[in-house]
Design a binder for these strands. Structure first.
Lengths: 238, 238
DNA sequence: TCGACTGTGTTCGCTACCGCACAAAAGATC
DNA sequence: GATCTTTTGTGCGGTAGCGAACACAGTCGA
């Protein structure tokens, strides 16, 4: 299953065959370049996006310009849940954090599909619950854990949504996501580099020791991961 | 509409008449005493709870015992969304934060009602989206705002879910919710008392100047409030 | 009426992170 | 190859909140 297959998105991959056949003509390939804003706070969405190789950050931008990541969506999920949840918009922004591809479906179509109230709906709702867990755990992590731990968590979350072990990501961007100073990220990243967990070079991070990151991060990563695995099995279970 | 009417829960209040008639025999009054645990992390829920006068905290308890509130649910909402979202459980805990009453419905019944895929479902989903916004904003607030501001936000959120201007709540409990030290809450509460916004006395807080709290808190409170108002209109709009 | 307990106030040293300023190094551009 | 821009590294004073220890005051029960 390569990146040119919509089914490299895990939600699409577990669609029942009947739904999949109906969906195929409704899906449209899109490039998702770094920094692209998929939706803006308060704006009504035109499409939902199923990333296949891209990673998207949901973040809240404060009045003073500071920001904080609320959750991250990659090939395991879908961007734009407020369309089928019924609110049409959210107070947050969705930005492509790691360039790649995805497929999208128009707002009207996804609502129609959701309202069939069948397996598609239940799948999307289970995904939404997993996303809720991620947000909740982000709140906890922001409250209690050190920048070191949070950086590890963030790297692992990104890694899970990519193939390979290299991320393209400047420290400045990571700082925006985590809602901390860029210098803080520099320090934390240096520590990780010194103990040999990563190698950093001008916007490219090679993860050398994934298990080491898992040992260094807080419980938040495992909680979220476990909940995604529980709620979104690899095969169709309907 | 007094507290003995299930319709003092705002979700129940906006149910279409046909649904309401069907629901009435399915609802059961329950007392919700301070500290009661409605569900435990990872446990399957037996009921959903619609508080009428009680307030419930959703909180995550860490391995080391520290905790953090993720969201709060009062007479505007329902506790136990994971039942109709399909996950059956969540990694968090629900605890009664302010004693009162509520009505509950069995897990099976709420699932049946949700799966009618009518107005009830769409109402519950819009509520869930509002709850998501609250969680997201909690994450942001934990990241960026001072304890002072967060205490104001927390007081306002509680106040919105109560009648009157008095809360029964020790500083120790507030500290657990906010995920901070009790001493920090003492200091912040003293400041608020000195400038005349509240009066504190052994577990009882009188809010004297609500507008003052709103001026002192961060934007997070207003963002969440606005989103609840937008997603959950006072009257049925279906 | 005398504890015992619960809730609140205060202090002190400590640490993580902030804000700012600036230096150095690695591309990019011409 | 000289210059500009982007990215990363470093140092410094300031501060919010932590952890621990303790004093004090209502409240309740024996």
């Amino acid at each position: 299953m390569n990146a040119a297959d919509p089914k490299s998105n895990r939600l699409l991959a577990v669609l029942p065959e009947a739904d999949w056949q109906r969906w195929l003509p409704l899906l449209e390939w899109v490039d998702m370049p770094l920094g692209q804003v998929l939706y803006e706070s308060g704006r009504t969405l035109s499409h939902v996006y199923f990333p296949t190789s891209a990673i998207v950050s949901l973040l809240y931008v404060m009045e003073n310009g500071a920001s904080a990541e609320i959750a991250v969506v990659g090939n395991e999920g879908v961007v734009g849940i407020s369309l089928f949840m019924g609110g049409e918009s959210t107070p947050s922004r969705a930005v492509v954090q790691s360039a790649g591809k995805g497929v999208r479906m128009s707002a009207q179509k996804i609502k129609d599909e959701f309202n069939r109230a069948g397996p598609v709906m239940h799948l999307l709702l289970r995904y939404t619950q997993a996303l809720i867990t991620q947000m909740a755990q982000t709140a906890v992590c922001n409250r209690h854990h050190t920048l070191d731990q949070q950086l590890c968590r963030w790297l692992l979350l990104s890694l899970d949504r990519l193939q390979g072990s290299e991320l393209t990501m400047t420290q400045e961007l990571i700082a925006n996501m985590l809602g901390v100073r860029r210098e803080g990220v520099t320090e934390a990243a240096l520590k990780l580099q010194r103990i040999g967990l990563i190698r950093y070079a001008r916007g490219h991070i090679h993860v050398l020791d994934r298990a080491g990151l898992e040992r260094r991060t807080c419980e938040c990563y495992a909680v979220v991961k476990k909940e995604y695995d529980r709620l979104l099995p690899d095969r169709t279970a309907t």
